Computed example of a mutant assay.
Amino acid sequence: MKLTIIAVGTKMPAWVQSGFQEYEKRLPREWKPNVRELAVAKRSNNANVEKLKQQEGEQILAALPRNAYVIALDVLGKKVDTHSLSTNMKNWQELGQDIAILIGGPDGLSEACLKRANQLISLSDLTLPHPLVRIVLIEQLYRGWTILNNHPYHK
């Protein structure tokens, strides 16, 4: 299994990179993600948000690994707690497929990305800025891994 995180947004601030790297380095090799950063569609005051999401969605779909099992992070997705995320992680490993987790841009994911997803997950009822989602996601992946491996971090 290879894990890919496809995220809209490039040139993340140093605090995002640092936070992400802190948890990424703790993960074992099989859970270290390949991160694909994609450009945010150019926004203006009169921009059509759906068209921008569609443009970003086309980039995301083009970046998907072939035959990947796709998890889309979306506010309307199934709410998961840490233990159910760790159960999901175990199930993903058992699929024998590459895994791709999608993080949308400022306006979320396109309808095409949501339809392509095998699973929709919400990390929080809160609206999180997409750079922060990267840190929350990688920390929760690490925490889920610690639960699966009886590591004391989660306690």
Results as ranks from 00 to 15, higher is better:
Met1Leu: 11
Met1Gln: 05
Met1Lys: 05
Met1Ile: 09
Lys2Phe: 09
Leu3Glu: 05
Leu3Ala: 01
Thr4Leu: 02
Thr4Gln: 12
Ile5Glu: 10
Ile6Arg: 07
Ala7Thr: 15
Thr10Met: 11
Thr10Ile: 14
Lys11Pro: 05
Pro13Tyr: 05
Ala14Cys: 07
Val16Arg: 03
Gln17Arg: 15
Ser18Arg: 15
Gly19Trp: 01
Glu22Ile: 00
Glu22Gln: 15
Tyr23Pro: 04
Tyr23Val: 03
Glu24Phe: 13
Arg26Asp: 03
Arg26His: 08
Leu27Glu: 08
Glu30Leu: 11
Glu30Tyr: 15
Trp31His: 14
Trp31Lys: 14
Asn34Ile: 13
Lys42Cys: 00
Arg43Pro: 04
Arg43Gly: 01
Asn45His: 12
Asn46Val: 07
Ala47Lys: 10
Asn48Lys: 14
Asn48Thr: 06
Val49Glu: 11
Lys53Gly: 07
Gln55Cys: 07
Gln55Glu: 14
Glu58Leu: 08
Ile60Lys: 04
Leu61His: 06
Ala62Met: 04
Ala62Glu: 13
Ala62Arg: 14
Ala62Cys: 01
Ala62Ile: 00
Leu64Phe: 04
Leu64Asp: 00
Pro65Tyr: 08
Arg66Leu: 11
Ala68Asp: 00
Ala68His: 03
Tyr69His: 12
Tyr69Lys: 09
Ile71Asn: 05
Leu73Ser: 08
Asp74Thr: 13
Val75Ser: 13
Gly77Ser: 07
Lys79Ala: 14
Asp81Asn: 15
Asp81Met: 08
Thr82Met: 00
His83Asp: 05
Leu85Ile: 08
Thr87Asp: 13
Asn88Lys: 14
Met89Gly: 08
Lys90Ala: 12
Asn91Ser: 13
Glu94Leu: 14
Leu95Ala: 01
Leu95Gln: 14
Ile99Ser: 06
Ile99Lys: 04
Ile101Gly: 02
Ile101Gln: 03
Leu102Arg: 05
Ile103Lys: 10
Pro106Ala: 15
Pro106Val: 07
Asp107Thr: 06
Leu109Thr: 11
Glu111His: 07
Leu114Gly: 06
Leu114Tyr: 03
Lys115Val: 13
Ala117Pro: 12
Asn118His: 14
Asn118Pro: 05
Gln119Asn: 10
Leu120Arg: 15
Leu120Asp: 04
Ile121Thr: 13
Ile121Gln: 10
Asp125Pro: 12
Asp125Trp: 03
Leu128Arg: 01
Leu128Ile: 11
Pro129Gly: 00
His130Met: 03
Pro131Thr: 03
Leu132Glu: 04
Leu132Asn: 03
Val133Leu: 10
Val133Ile: 15
Arg134Glu: 02
Ile135Cys: 02
Val136Thr: 11
Ile138Lys: 02
Ile138Gly: 03
Ile138Cys: 01
Gln140Phe: 04
Leu141Asp: 03
Arg143Val: 02
Gly144Pro: 02
Leu148Ala: 09
Leu148His: 02
Leu148Asp: 07
Asn149Tyr: 06
Asn150Ala: 14
Pro152His: 10
Pro152Leu: 07
Lys155Arg: 15
